[in-house]
Amino acid sequence: MKPQRKKRLFAILATLAGVSIAVALVLVALSENINLFYKPSDVEAGKAPQNKTIKVGGLVVPGTVKRGENLLQVSFTIRDNQSDLEVRFDDVLPDLFKEGQGIVATGKLTEQGHFQASSVLAKHDENYMPPEVARALKESGHPVKDIN
């Protein structure tokens, strides 16, 4: 390569490296804000503010979904690897809400230590398969979310 072209190539690479470092620093500094939600362990560690609208997310622990007397009232526990958090909600849950499913709830942490949600979003994971395969997996003892 001619020296001049080499010089231009290095100028481009240097620019790219500089921009990458700058962006990386910004992202690291902002990482708390880029996370969409707090995990139950963050809440337990006291990282989440009380009485402020925040989002929490985790897996719905099977067997903890309880319906209240009021038709829509529902409570359930979400969990990450370390901690649990009780979520209460009185509105329509999304169709894909199921036990064992990941969810993201928006709402406020109350003083009693549970989370009063104003909206619940369902996450889904990156595994796709036909119903027969899912059934076969379940029968052979693999953990698969509930099938309707």
Binding site: L36, F37, K123, H124, D125, E126
Partner: peptide, 19 residues
């Protein structure tokens, strides 16, 4: 980061997580 969007199903290094 924690996101609502799920992880990648297709990756060059892993077995695809799709039937």
């Amino acid at each position: 980061w924690n996101s609502l969007h799920q992880d990648a199903s297709l990756s060059k290094l892993q077995k695809p997580k799709i039937d």
